[in-house]
Design a binder for these strands. Sequence first.
DNA 1: ACCTGAACACCGTTCAAGT
DNA 2: ACCTGAACACCGTTCAAGT
Lengths: 222, 222
Amino acid sequence: MPQSSAPRKTLGRPPRISREEVVTTARRIVDAEGVDRLTMRRLATEIGSTPMALYHHVRNKEELLVLLLDDYATRTLHRPELPAQPRERIVAAAATIHEALAACPWIVEVLTADDLMAPSALWFVEQIVDGLVECGLSPERAVHGYRAIWYYTAGEIVVRVTAAQRRTDDDRPTYRERVFADLDPSELPRLAQVADQWSPLTAEDTYLDGLRALVDGLLAPC
Amino acid sequence: MPQSSAPRKTLGRPPRISREEVVTTARRIVDAEGVDRLTMRRLATEIGSTPMALYHHVRNKEELLVLLLDDYATRTLHRPELPAQPRERIVAAAATIHEALAACPWIVEVLTADDLMAPSALWFVEQIVDGLVECGLSPERAVHGYRAIWYYTAGEIVVRVTAAQRRTDDDRPTYRERVFADLDPSELPRLAQVADQWSPLTAEDTYLDGLRALVDGLLAPC
DNA sequence: ACCTGAACACCGTTCAAGT
DNA sequence: ACCTGAACACCGTTCAAGT
């Protein structure tokens, strides 16, 4: 793996671009034009080099995206004052992660990578796991609880972001709208009842309500 | 939009391929080799035609994927006997959807499309919304409750499927493993404590536990 | 109405060679 | 050690023409 931070022991051609420059330039492209426009070729021309030069600094495009997420997390995920009460601490930590992710929609491509295991996010994971343990869960159940919170959080981001993308793409009625339009009220009475409110209702941001419900449910046996 | 099912009013060149044939062939490719291998060109050669012929039967690749999800849902999502008790009915309906999605990992590409609004899935959505209303939630809160369940379900699928993909891709230590390996126990004591159990713990299928916690939490105020 | 051929405007990545 | 040029093996989609 290329290590631009390691001391140079052997002499060779001096590097013209650094891993950091690659990541910074990639960030600029993504911020300005969206993640779809980030290609190795585009990045190379932007940086004044060739596609292949990049491969000396990142293993491949996927690694570049993970580095980008790390970079983003390090820059924006500052540790807030969290409530002392453990239940509220869990909610606040999850909400902070959620807020940071929601503000950078391109993340969806990378989000699903592993966990959100950017080093700067680990502190929040710690707070959540610790809060669950303090509330009486075993370490094992606390990890499972964190995962449930993570599934819920990642799902909310993925669903909301991609729905938003589709809305701007074109203005024909969405597939969902067509399906709701010819709904049989005798077969699906509840859905028919809420059909015309569905869009505004699902557009509301209810992340926090659902999060509280989930945390309450996870802590209920205690 | 092409309507192969509509009666042919004007005479013209008789169609050689149908929308149904396109979808069926696409399904065969996806089942056999994964969604990555489904390209318009590959599909065209498989069907014995040219890429452009496909565009007379589907608007574009995205529509093809939505049709594929519908097709899959129609074939596999059969209505089970659901428990009469509303809380258990909600859990069972969500679990059935989850099971169907988990069995077809290529879904992740499409999942995020809108809601899971395949017509054959609507019955399950109805059961969930109805169960929540029967438990005392207002229709509005019931829709929000369904959304929370959907976020959790979609998130679980997305995270698990992509984690599995990455595992098979290569056998180097994952990014997560590297991050966990050099964890500072004085800074992140809980994570350090569970570090070596993290992989097995997160590999466990705890979807149902989290789902029950979420549903309990949603119904708690009642 | 439906299909074809050729082209447009791209991708990520590898290989072999240069400095 | 780092970078370049050229190539490989692809993409989705459009356009203009054929039947």
